[in-house]
Amino acid sequence: MADTPEEIKKAQKKYLLIGLILFAFTIVTVAVATVPALDFGKHGFDTWDAIIGLCIASVKATLVALIFMHLNHEKKSIYLFIVLGVLGGLSLIGLTGWAFIDPIEYGTATEGNGFFNPEMVIEEE
C-alpha cells in the first residue's frame, strides 16, 4: 500500500496509465465486434468474437482488481475472500451447467437408451 507522498505520486501515474490501457482495450473489443474488416471466424458475430471479448474483459477486470483495488499488495486473507467468492460463482455456474448438459436420456419401449436394453432378458431367480 502506497503510504508516502512520493509513492502515492508514482502510484497516480500508474493509475492514469492503467486507465488509458483500459480505454484502449475497450476500443479493441468494440472494433473486433463491429468492424467488418476485423471479422474472425464467421461473418457477423460468432464464438471467436465472444471469446476475444470475454478474454479482454477478464484482463481489464484483473487490472482493475489488482491495481485500482490494491489487491496486489493486499493481505492474503483478502485474497481468500475473493477466491471463495469466485470459486462459489464458478461452482454455481459449472455444476448447474453440468446438470443442464447431462440430462437423463429417455429411451423408448423398443429402443432403450444405451443403459437399458428392453430386449435384455432378466434372469428369474
Binding site: 458475430f45 474483459a57 481489464k60
Partner: peptide, 11 residues
C-alpha cells in the same frame, strides 16, 4: 460493467 458491456451490447 466491464463484463456487462460486451456481454449485453456486443454479443
Amino acid at each position: 460493467w466491464i463484463f456487462l458491456f460486451p456481454i449485453l451490447y456486443l454479443m
